[in-house]
Design a protein around this nucleic acid. Structure first.
Lengths: 116, 116
DNA sequence: ATAGCATGTCGTATATTTGCGTCATACTAG
DNA sequence: CTAGTATGACGCAAATATACGACATGCTAT
């Protein structure tokens, strides 16, 4: 994600893109849903639930952790991953703001001089 | 995005990831914000507003178009791009559902047997 | 027809992502 | 201490994404 031109955008745009990127893979979406559905914060059980190797799942977990959407605590032999609900709520706000802004102005139409 | 294992996830997870991927670059976020802020559906003016070459911007536009988040109508010499507000609203719902699901269950804590 | 502009497509180089096997580490149990 | 197990780190191959210059196409005037 650290391409040369990436830095020339708004902080807000970069943040949104950053989180979006974290959710840009079905496995990572699935991981978050899994963590949300279980009371216990499972660890390697996640890998067992996904159609991917343990190694690959571990990488996806690291990616989610890098964005701080999830957190991991070493619990003896296993590792306990949890959702960062606080951040998730904040991100939800951010996305909502974006979508509202994008949908508030009625779609451009003939009035604006275009055929859409 | 069409890796081998991608297809073994829920339709819902794939859809969400698909849209998230479309928003996973600051330029594409910026494009949507630009289209939302202007009454007229600008075309190549978009390129002028972004710190990227016209060619690169055109590619980002094609990606957004591929996911149907925006639509383009040839308007004589120029091309008029518009937001697909209908889809945007649907996507907003989808994301909200996801985030609510992820944040409704209180974070796992000592009760669940973990230190998070 | 000719010239000129707006756009998209193509080819190319580089950076990143994805997926997995193998190894190193760390802790638990015997 | 010796296994045994759960995890992350490392390295590698293949697939994608990113960015851009050069070209092709399609209108609009003149």
């Amino acid at each position: 994600m650290t391409y040369a031109k990436t830095s020339e955008f708004t902080q807000e745009q970069q943040e949104l893109a950053r989180v979006a990127k974290a959710l840009a893979h079905p496995a990572r979406v699935a991981i978050i849903q899994l963590l949300a559905s279980r009371q216990t914060c499972i660890s390697g059980d996640i890998a067992a639930e996904l159609p991917l190797s343990r190694t690959t799942v571990s990488q996806h977990l690291q990616e989610l952790k890098a964005v701080d959407l999830i957190r991991g605590e070493i619990e003896g032999l296993t590792v306990c991953y949890c959702l960062n609900t606080e951040l998730l709520r904040r991100v939800h706000q951010q996305f909502t703001g974006f979508f509202v802004e994008a949908t508030s102005n009625g779609a451009c139409g003939p009035d604006a001089g275009c055929a859409c």
